[in-house]
């Protein structure tokens, strides 16, 4: 694109992009404690990409970055699911719950304030799905913006 929005919009975008991304990461990481999760957090992160595309207009070629990010997220998600077969009983078995490793803390029964280092594979899968959704929606937005810009009518 060879246009961009006014300086006011660009300044507000500069200020707002970082809180939006931080909020998306918060939604993803706290997916097993509060409402939200991978899909929602990924959509929030992708909205920051939409804001950047709309306000700045010109952008580099991010197609390969987003594409590899999406493939990485989905591949790691499926690998985590298959590790459930290898280490436990079934696919999507929560092999990390309560083992003391990463996200392996134990939750007291009943009402509790909520601890981030719990949940087993659920936070890991949230992170993978968040990676995938953020990259996928960003890639769709980027491709549409690029295609609408470089549209030429050819006979």
């Amino acid at each position: 694109m060879n246009w961009k929005m006014s300086r006011v919009v660009r300044t507000v975008t500069d200020i707002m992009v970082v809180p939006i991304i931080v909020y998306g990461i918060y939604l993803i990481i706290h997916g097993h404690l509060t409402p939200g999760g991978g899909f929602q957090g990924g959509a929030v992160i992708a909205s920051s990409t939409a804001l950047l595309i709309v306000s700045y207009g010109s952008f580099r070629d991010y197609k390969k970055d987003f594409s590899s990010m999406e493939s990485l997220g989905l591949t790691l998600f499926i690998l985590l699911a298959i590790f459930g077969i290898l280490l436990g009983a079934t696919m999507f078995h929560n092999f990390g719950a309560g083992t003391g490793g990463l996200f392996g803390g134990t939750v007291p029964e009943g009402i509790n304030p909520g601890y981030v280092n719990t949940g087993g594979t659920i936070p890991m899968m949230n992170i993978m799905v968040g990676l995938e959704v953020a990259a996928a929606l960003s890639l769709i937005l980027w491709m549409m913006a690029k295609a609408s810009d470089s549209m030429e009518v050819e006979a």
């Binding site: 097993h32 719950a97 803390g105 909520g114």
Partner: peptide, 8 residues
Amino acid sequence: QSHNQANN
């Protein structure tokens, strides 16, 4: 909660 150690 006891299966997955997750609140949500």
